[in-house]
Amino acid sequence: MQHVKLIIGLVLTVIGVSLVFGSLPGKTQYPQGDQGAVSREARVEYLERRNYTYILSQSFLLRNPSNNTVVDLVYMWLPVNASNQFVRLLETSMEPLYRKSGEDGALILVYNLSLSGGEATWLNATLQVTVEKYRLLMENIPWLNYSQVEKNTGGKRYWAVENQTYVSIAQSIGLDARDPVEACSKIGKWILARLDYQPTWRRGAEHALITRGGRLIVYGDCEEVADVFVTLARILGVRSRVVHGIYLLEDKDVVTMWIRRTETGYDTSENWGGHAWPQIYVPQAGWVDVELLEGLTVKIGDFSQYHVKYGFEEKSFLGSTMLYCQAMYLETDLFQFTFRRAQS
């Protein structure tokens, strides 16, 4: 019986020793070593890139409303050849007088047109527009450097970066974000959670935020969504701008949309897709599209082939004017856009 104590003692001691020594590391270990779980590299990788080409015919019916012959300069905006979009002018019904670039890079053809009193004529341009559908993986992205923040994140007419309500909102949303993409994702979610989508005149961020039932609401359409996003992003030091363009609401081989002047204003086709959305600048990737209204989910660098870009708004204080086709004295009675899918 007394030997039992010895046996138990020996067994417990052996087990105890093996547990103590077995649990000790063979060499020094680090909880997250440099080869460990946390990457110390910024990662930008395209998960998907695919080009879609449209043959775009944009036609504008111009009319001289006066009784006298008018010689006028007519300005026609083209889709931009930038930011993952490639544009080639195939033909135009008249030789333009010259080409002009807007402050934020919009491409404008300037025509010299003479119409006698009451006369109307079509001005057409055919373009090959290749847009890129892409999905971008962005991880561990650094913030911009000091000079970029200083130079490119200020306020403009529509972006109220010094408005204390916006400053307070931006800081509560994104101050603890580790990187700019995370901050923008939080901004997008914040906007969507409060969005009351209503087509309206462009109000700018200053007037897009309203209080309803004690709760902040983002009131407006795509432009207000873009303006609020850009405002909040810029407050947090993210370079951001607004893109103006057309969104193809129909996934068809041929899509035609139009705007027509009426006696009292304007009428549009049901599928009219004038659109605006934000972009953020990520040095490792360039300008990255942000779409919040396609499926009402935050898409950063997840861009569909239905967007056609006509112009950017970043530097101009009052915003860039983008009117597709306008003259000073001649009226534009009809704006018509036909997109024919060429290849995919």
Binding site: K5, L6, I8, G9, L10, V11, L12, T13, V14, I15, G16, V17, S18, L19, V20, F21, G22, S23, L24, P25, T28, Q29, Y30, P31, Q32, G33, D34
Partner: peptide, 26 residues
């Protein structure tokens, strides 16, 4: 980069207790 915590793990603590009991029994 700080090394892993030097606090004894639960397993080694149990082992230590068993070892003490075993030695005491002997």
């Amino acid at each position: 980069v700080k090394p892993a915590s030097s606090q004894p793990s639960i397993i080694s603590a149990i082992g230590l207790i068993l070892m003490v009991i075993g030695v005491f029994t002997i």
